[in-house]
Each structure stands twice: as structure tokens, then as C-alpha cells.
């Protein structure tokens, strides 16, 4: 068990870093507007991230599994570690991090190392979401902004009432965003461990049976929650939140758009429903909240007709699409070599 936990640590580190870096996106404005204290936000965020991971995390993980089925814990550890190292280095370089892109690069590294080849159909499906998710977030932000603007202009709601709604909205969207973050990004944190899952089925009082994948996702959700509780306050305070530049209502719109996008890319029920009525459904893939938010901010600029596109920021995203998976691929490939030949672990 101790060996298993040590091997899970790289996934837990990914989860911790995700929690520390992403809580600010969903809760920064609610904390900034004094709607909730950091402590309350951290508790709510943790609870809903875990719920999202356990309840809604299945779909995204199965897509990652299609790219590569890693059956050995040591290999899964190396893949997650390579992704974690890449994510850490990219964020140090100021590039909006996408853990998903690092994980994909790592899995491909494992595929090539193990001689399994790459399923280009799945890879194309995943890579297309890197472009689609910021564009979709931008489109949702644009639409939501227009609806809210029309409502405010027509309804003549008193400023005090509007403020009250906004403050409640920030908490509700924070909760929804935390759930969506858990459901969507748990695939990055624990997806590679699904096939090499060290956990057994848990039976509670002979009534409730929790399957091993849910236990694994619970551990991953817990790691994200620890990241939220231990380090996100510092991240909010030191790095700050770009959304502070906006009014609380516009920040609410952008955060809601990011949450909706993440939810759309992780909801199995919606995916199945759309397929059942013959409509194309979005692939269930972990996406990057930090890249989605850039799309949201551009959508907001277009809606307000003060298009101030930060090409530097956009450029960093495009660089990230290429550099992140390649770096993760190389780190993973080299690490697998060491894992197999120096630490004598089975990796394929």
C-alpha cells in the first residue's frame, strides 16, 4: 500500500498544484467582493471539487484512457510526474498552463516508449479541444454578456438589488465552477492511474458500494482540495486575479462561461443525451481553465466593443499548445527509460 501511495504522489502533486492555481479563478472575485471569507470559499470549493471529481469525473478519464492504457503503477507515476514537472516549468515561464496538454504529451511519450503507437483519431479529438475550449468560452461570454446587458438596460433593477444578486451569483457560480473543475480536471490528476488503480472496492455498512475508480477520484479530489486550502490564498494574494480588473458583474459572466465550458467538456449525461437525439456532442476531455479564461476575456472585449486583444497572451497560449506536449513527451520518455533501467520498475 505504501508503495502504491508513493506512486500516486505524482498525481497528488498535480492535483495540489491544480487546486492552488485554479481556486482563484472561481472564487477570487467572491473573496474580493467580501461575499465570502477565504476560509468559507476554500471549504465550499473543496467540497464541490471532490463531489465533481467523484460524481462527474468518469467521462474525461475514459477519453484519456483511449489515448493510452497504462496498466503499471510505476509507469502511471512517471507519466503524471512528467506532466507535473512540465506544468511547473511552464507556469514558471509565465505561460498559461494546461495540465491537460502536459498529460497528453506524457501519455504519448509512454505510448512511443512502450511501442504501442498513437491513436491519432483520439489525439486529434483531444487537441481540437485546446482550440475549441477558449473559442467556446469566448462565445458563451459574448452571449451571456449581451443577455445580461439587455436585462439590466430593460429591467431598471435597482443598483442595490443588482449588487445583492451579483454577490449571491458569485457564490453559486463559484460552487458550480468548483464542481466543473473537479469533474473536468480530475482526468488530468488521476486519469492515468485508472487502469493501474491500487484501490479496492469499498463497502459502507453493507448499503453503499464505492467502486475503485471513485475511490481513486476521491483521493485526487482530496489532493486538489489540499491545494485549495494550503496554497490558493497565497496565489490569490501574490499573483492576483486578472478578473479583479473587471466589475463584479463582468467577472461573474466570465467565471460562469469558464464553468459552463468545463461542464460541457465533462458531463457524460449531456454527452449521451446529445448523441441520443442525433446531435454532435463535445468530446469529454480535460481542458485548461487558464486558457478558457483568456478566451472569455476576449469574448467580453468583443461584446463591449472595446476589443483590446492581448496578442502576447494569445501567443503564449499557442506556444503552450506546441511546447507543453513536446516537453512533457520528452521528459516522460527519458524518465521512463530511467524508471525501467535504473529503478528496475515494469513500465510496459
Amino acid at each position: 500500500m505504501i508503495r502504491s501511495l508513493i506512486f500516486l504522489s505524482s498525481g497528488a502533486f498535480l492535483g495540489w498544484s491544480l487546486g492552488a492555481n485554479h481556486a482563484g479563478i472561481f472564487w477570487g472575485t467572491a473573496i474580493g467582493t467580501k461575499m465570502v471569507k477565504f476560509r468559507t470559499a476554500a471549504i465550499l470549493c473543496s467540497i464541490f471539487v471532490i463531489l465533481g471529481s467523484v460524481i462527474g469525473g468518469g467521462g474525461v478519464s475514459s477519453t484519456l484512457s483511449q489515448l493510452g492504457t497504462i496498466e503499471h503503477l510505476a509507469a502511471a507515476f512517471t507519466v503524471a510526474l512528467a506532466a507535473a514537472v512540465t506544468t511547473y516549468s511552464m507556469s514558471k515561464a509565465g505561460i498559461p498552463i494546461s495540465t491537460s496538454q502536459a498529460v497528453v504529451g506524457s501519455i504519448i511519450g509512454w505510448n512511443i516508449y512502450s511501442g504501442f503507437g498513437v491513436d491519432y483519431l483520439v489525439l486529434t479529438k483531444i487537441a481540437s479541444t485546446w482550440v475549441v475550449s477558449p473559442v467556446l468560452t469566448g462565445a458563451i461570454t459574448y452571449g451571456l454578456f449581451k443577455v445580461v446587458q439587455h436585462f439590466i438596460n430593460k429591467s431598471k433593477v435597482h443598483m442595490i438589488t443588482l449588487d445583492t444578486w451579483t454577490r449571491y451569483g458569485l457564490v453559486i457560480v463559484g460552487i458550480f465552477g468548483s464542481y466543473a473543475l473537479g469533474a473536468n480536471n480530475i482526468g488530468n490528476v488521476m486519469g492515468v492511474f485508472v487502469e493501474a488503480n491500487p484501490f479496492k472496492e469499498i463497502e459502507l455498512l453493507n448499503i453503499l458500494v464505492i467502486d475503485p475508480t471513485k475511490v481513486l477520484f476521491f483521493v485526487g479530489g482530496l489532493a486538489i482540495a489540499v491545494g485549495v486550502a494550503t496554497f490558493s490564498k497565497k496565489v490569490i494574494n501574490t499573483i492576483g486575479n486578472n478578473l479583479y480588473k473587471f466589475s463584479p458583474i463582468t467577472a461573474l459572466i466570465v467565471v460562469l462561461s469558464v464553468s459552463i465550458t468545463m461542464f460541457l467538456f465533462s458531463s457524460s449525461s449531456l454527452h449521451d443525451f446529445l448523441n441520443s437525439i442525433g446531435l454532435p456532442a463535445l468530446p469529454l476531455v480535460p481542458i485548461s481553465a487558464s486558457q478558457a479564461i483568456v478566451g472569455g476575456i476576449i469574448g467580453l472585449g468583443l461584446a463591449r466593443k472595446n476589443v483590446d486583444i492581448n496578442y502576447n497572451e494569445l501567443g503564449k497560449i499557442v506556444i503552450g499548445w506546441i511546447v507543453t506536449p513536446i516537453s512533457a513527451f520528452l521528459i516522460c520518455y527519458i524518465s521512463l527509460y530511467f524508471m525501467e533501467n535504473v529503478f528496475l520498475q515494469v513500465v510496459n
Binding site: M35, I160, D163, T164, R167, P248
Partner: peptide
């Protein structure tokens, strides 16, 4: 006492 958004 109604805790509005601080800026407002």
C-alpha cells in the same frame, strides 16, 4: 449592515 460589494 447589508454588506454590499465594498466598491459599491
Amino acid at each position: 449592515s447589508y454588506m454590499l460589494i465594498p466598491e459599491s
